[in-house]
Design a protein around this nucleic acid. Structure first.
Lengths: 178, 178
DNA sequence: AGATGACATGTATGAACTTACATGTCAATT
DNA sequence: AATTGACATGTAAGTTCATACATGTCATCT
């Protein structure tokens, strides 16, 4: 369901596109929030045609197929956004790692935290680059989906960094003095 | 893989338990970070027996089966925690909603944000109650997994709340004055 | 004695997801 | 002329996950 909504959102905001285009757009925009590869996207588009949410144009060069959102499709995203009861369920491998951290003893836990910190920093860097791109494109007049989600992502990632720092300090405080 | 690690973590920190016990423990502890119901847990335990990560004792009353972690199993969680390259991939429906928010016009977006805010507040309340329980149990001497993950969860949830507030303010500022 | 509800374990079905396999076009470089 | 790499679409196999179905035990309350 979510994949379908994400695709409709992209088609709605940036107009007709091929499965290939959408796969790329996914990577460059929604990716930090939802992941999907072409092997998931192509079949989903086919189903969406059957369900009348998008239409597919004639094959272009290299077998390219262009999908256009229908009125039905537009209604579907709007319905999802306005009528769905939001759920706050999260599933995060790094949070699981945080959960299990007490299984390790002090030095090991610190090492694990250090590795987590690197990963978080890498993510933050990626998000900030994405944001820079967004701003550049916003200056040229194009509207953008994902502006708010980027803010959220950056805020969340910074929070994770703060947590890692505080947790490391806590672990050090509990370790026997050398 | 993650489910398996989570189960091993629980077995490692609180000793032998049945599938039923583990299902309950999941609900009350790991749940805010990783979700699994009994229909996923029972088959996974069976596979873990085959793989030598846990052993199963004789059936007790009401067909109860008690699982105990093996040396292999302990090694497996530790390996996961210390050797895995942490990935920061997240998949969140509410972040997707944030992503698509610009598809709605001002008033609708504000309404959607209000609904999101309620959901976030509910989650925060749940986490804080969990934390209170944890503290009570910590006072009675039992050690706990998940202390750090709870901190992280609470911090993340508060950040989400801040984001919602800021985003609402931003939307209001962009709306034509009434 | 019967009902209720917590205890306890499973299976089945279908959707969603990941990873790998498979095929072919077109443009630019070597 | 051959190779490389981006463009472009698909399928297959296996795993994970959610929801529902299915069964039976034991203690307590009425």
């Amino acid at each position: 369901m979510s994949l379908r909504i994400a695709l409709l959102g992209l088609l709605s905001s940036s107009g007709p596109a091929s499965g290939y285009d959408l796969t790329k757009k996914f990577e460059r925009s929604i990716n930090h929030v939802w992941q999907a590869g072409h092997s998931q996207i192509y079949p989903e588009l086919a189903k969406m045609v059957i369900d009348g949410l998008v239409t597919v144009g004639a094959e272009g060069a290299r077998g390219r197929k262009t999908y256009t959102i229908t009125r039905e499709g537009t209604a579907e995203v709007r319905r999802w956004l306005t009528e769905r009861t939001p759920t706050e369920a999260t599933r995060s491998e790094s949070a699981l790692e945080a959960f299990l951290l007490p299984l390790l003893d002090g030095p090991e836990a610190l090492a694990a935290l250090a590795r987590m910190t690197s990963a978080i920093e890498a993510k933050l860097k990626g998000l900030e680059e994405l944001q820079a791109t967004h701003r550049r494109e916003a200056a040229t007049g194009r509207t953008h989906l994902g502006h708010y989600a980027l803010n959220l992502g950056i805020m969340q990632t910074k929070t994770a960094l703060t947590w890692a720092k505080e947790t490391a300090a806590d672990l050090e405080a509990r370790m026997p003095p050398t």
